[in-house]
C-alpha cells in the first residue's frame, strides 16, 4: 500500500537523511558566523573554523604555557574520574536499594515514600547544605552526582523489580528457594540489564550535575573550563568542548548498550534486534 507509513528509506537514503539535520545546522552556523565575522573580524560569539581549529590545537595538542599540561586531556581525565566514581557509587546504591525496595514489603514500607520524596528535591537548590556536609573538594563533586541520580535509579529499579511476574517468585518458593536465593537467582539476573538501562537514562543528568559541580569550585575539568572561558566569551574554546562532551556522552551510552547486548543476550532474543 502506498502510504507514508509504509515507505521506508533504503541504505544510502537512510544515511543521507540521518546526516541532513546535522548538515543543515552546520550550514546555518557557517552562514551566521560568516555574516558576523564580516561585520567584526574578531567576533567571539560565532567563531569561524580557523579560530576554532586554532583553539582545539592550543587546548588539545600543545602543552599549556603556564603549567605545561595538555589542558583538554587534563580536563577530560578530571571530569571522567568524577563522573565515573559518581555513576559507579550511584549504581551500587541504586541496585541494592532498588531491588530490596521492589521485592521486600517491609523494606518498601520503610523506604518507598522516603526515596520518592528525596528524588523530588532538586539537589542544586540545597547546594550550601551539601557544601557544609561534604566540603568543596573532590568528594563533594562526586557526591553531587550521586545525590543527583541515585533516587532515580532506585525508583526505576524498584519499579522493574515489582514488575517481575509474581508466578516466578511463587515457583521459586515451591522449589524451596529462600528469600536470599530468590534475590540471587531470580531477581538479580533479571535486574542487571535493567540497571544498565537506568544508568544509561541517568547519564544525561549525571553530566549536568558534574558540570554544575565543576562550575562551583574546581581547578580542572570540562565544566570548569567552559565556565572559565565563558567569562570572556571564548566560544572558540567552548564550542569544541561542548562537541567533545557530546561525543564522550554518546560513546559512554553506546559502550553501555553494547556491553548490555553482549552480557545479556537473552534480553534481545525474539525481539528481532
Amino acid at each position: 500500500m502506498r502510504r507514508l507509513i509504509n515507505r521506508k528509506p533504503d541504505g544510502v537514503a537512510r544515511l543521507a537523511l540521518m546526516l541532513l539535520p546535522f548538515l543543515l545546522v552546520l550550514l546555518a552556523y557557517m552562514a551566521a558566523s560568516e555574516a558576523r565575522l564580516a561585520v567584526n573580524p574578531n567576533d567571539k560569539l560565532l567563531p569561524g573554523w580557523a579560530s576554532i581549529s586554532a583553539a582545539v590545537e592550543r587546548m588539545a595538542f600543545l602543552p599549556d604555557s603556564r603549567t605545561g599540561n595538555y589542558l583538554m586531556l587534563n580536563d577530560t581525565l578530571a571530569s571522567l574520574t568524577r563522573l565515573g566514581m559518581g555513576v559507579v557509587i550511584a549504581t551500587a546504591i541504586g541496585g541494592v536499594f532498588g531491588i530490596l525496595q521492589g521485592l521486600i514489603p517491609y523494606f518498601r514500607a520503610i523506604f518507598n515514600s522516603f526515596t520518592n520524596v528525596l528524588s523530588m528535591i532538586p539537589p542544586l537548590s540545597v547546594l550550601p547544605i551539601l557544601f557544609i556536609m561534604f566540603g568543596l573538594g573532590e568528594p563533594a563533586k562526586v557526591l553531587l552526582i550521586v545525590v543527583g541520580i541515585t533516587p532515580f535509579i532506585i525508583r526505576d529499579l524498584a519499579l522493574r523489580t515489582s514488575e517481575i511476574p509474581h508466578e516466578e517468585i511463587i515457583k521459586a518458593q515451591t522449589l524451596g528457594a529462600s528469600t536470599w536465593q530468590i534475590i540471587l537467582r531470580v531477581v538479580v539476573p533479571q535486574m542487571l540489564p535493567r540497571l544498565i538501562d537506568a544508568v544509561r537514562l541517568s547519564l544525561g543528568a549525571a553530566w549536568l550535575f558534574l558540570i554544575a559541580a565543576e562550575a562551583i569550585a574546581s581547578n580542572a575539568g570540562l565544566g570548569y573550563r567552559i565556565f572559565l572561558m565563558r567569562r570572556y566569551l571564548a566560544m572558540d574554546v567552548i564550542l569544541p568542548y561542548v562537541a567533545w562532551i557530546t561525543l564522550l556522552a554518546f560513546a559512554l551510552d553506546l559502550a553501555l548498550r553494547l556491553f548490555q547486548r553482549a552480557a545479556f543476550r537473552w534480553m534481545y532474543r525474539g525481539t528481532g534486534n
Binding site: L127, P128, F131, I132, G135, L136, G137, A215, I216, A217, S218, N219, Y224, F227, L228
Partner: peptide, 20 residues
C-alpha cells in the same frame, strides 16, 4: 598559591566549610 575557581554565588557557603 593554588587558585581554585569558585562561583561568587557560593562564596559565603564555601567559606563556612572546613577545607576553605
Amino acid at each position: 598559591v593554588t587558585v581554585v575557581n569558585t562561583s561568587d554565588a557560593d562564596m559565603i557557603a564555601a567559606y563556612k566549610t572546613r577545607d576553605i
